[in-house]
Design a protein around this nucleic acid. Structure first.
Lengths: 241, 241
DNA sequence: AAGTGGTCTAGACCACTGA
DNA sequence: CAGTGGTCTAGACCACTTG
């Protein structure tokens, strides 16, 4: 049971993870106190902390003061999803990027949009509809609403030059983001824009972002058939684990 | 520019994040060395490390030894996606759960599955097709392949009692997981099982898991129309941030 | 070769939270 | 109120990476 002479929080993390994988520790079980683990592994408690923090991030264990560390009783498959700027994504695939502003208006905010922002009155909104193309083929159609109150500068931006997607991500980072992903049949309007048959199965990503409770933008992005979201691989910018 | 008397790595993280948000630090910019920040903030370098680690996890900055800390030049929208066990998900919505094993076989592994596992020969595989129902309505149809080599016990499990989904997640956690998400029109076969019209837009989640290079399972899960994947909100089991 | 982040230690005190 | 995790410190050494 005991182990000797290890080093690095990674080793400890892997050891504990191994004990969870091989069922030595089962869901709901309580793990030893940090201090006992530190003694067992001949390391400082800080190192145990570091290992535990990684396990918490992975969703494998839960920790509570006084309550100790327990294996999560409800296993989940946890992955990280990175959604790049559409232009960068297309160029990374080696395709030529182009985008096209379809229209720009300031209509009344529909109730659905207000609901997404979580406020009864989201204030005055700018609506932008745009198409991103990869090698001239429709790639993503986005229907976006931007808050004038939170992002007043938006009025002066020329979106025939920069896409609203890119401008916002680069200039107005968010503090909170909610994403919804679903499949939806293409409407006639959308089909005409995306150059597909009406009713075609499309992957839709809806993103809503806030800066400290203040709504920034809500966007519904329709992806061309064949598009796949991929998660879980190498995570650049993340600590090697 | 300087700030005094702060405390906690969270404050430092928020401060830096604020400087990135308000464009004091722009994408590609280099941040001060840890030691300088530590001095500026009157804290130990360890505390700076902790704050930086959080920013790396959030995808806001990159760090390299000798290269220093830089603001990521390619902003991404990073979210965490938790995929629960289907039974738990249905019950959490207040619906009654039932599942139904459609068939169980041991066919030759198609090339597509081998490719997903990343090995020319994934060994002998068990194929399971099952339907999960919420209040008697088709909810998820899963088409699963399980490696006999990696999971020999699978042969003895009675999947009319426990779903393969739940059995695997509970008994055979993985060390690596890759997820692909896309929209797909329902085939005639699938339509009959899911009780929808052929061609209906369905959200598909494909998951492949390994235990240290050894393939465990690959599953293609078709979700009923209306299903939405939601990310980004409260993350139980994750450090409060 | 030198600079910068990565990790570790030993000890201290704080902040929850369960008994 | 007592036990356990959370955070912080000051200092040390290591490991990468760039000039």
């Amino acid at each position: 049971m005991t182990s000797a002479g290890r080093q690095s929080w990674r080793d400890l993390r892997d050891h504990i993870r191994g004990r969870i994988l091989d069922q030595t520790f089962r869901p709901g079980d309580k793990l030893p106190r940090d201090e006992d683990l530190a003694q067992e592994f001949q390391c400082a408690r800080t190192t145990v902390q570091r290992a535990m923090q990684a396990l918490v991030d992975d969703g494998l264990v839960e920790r509570k003061r006084k309550g100790g560390t327990t294996v999560r009783p409800d296993p989940v498959t946890r992955t990280t999803l990175d959604i790049p700027i559409t232009r960068a994504e297309i160029e990374a695939r080696g395709h030529g990027y182009r985008h096209h502003l379809i229209d720009r208006s300031t209509p009344e905010a529909p109730a659905t949009i207000a609901a997404r922002f979580g406020t009864p009155d989201p204030g005055k909104l700018l609506r932008l509809r745009a198409l991103h193309l990869a090698d001239g083929q429709p790639y993503v159609f986005e229907d976006r609403w931007v808050s004038f109150d939170t992002v007043p500068e938006i009025a002066a931006v020329d979106f025939s030059q920069v896409s609203s997607n890119e401008w916002l991500v680069r200039n107005r980072p968010y503090s909170r983001c909610e994403v919804q992903i679903y499949a939806s049949p293409c409407t006639a309007d959308e089909a005409a824009i995306m150059e597909v048959e009406p009713g075609t199965a499309m992957l839709v990503l809806e993103r809503t972002t806030w800066l400290d409770e203040a709504p920034i933008t809500h966007v519904r992005a329709l992806h061309a058939p064949g598009y796949r979201l991929i998660t879980g691989e190498a995570r650049p910018g993340k600590l090697a684990r």
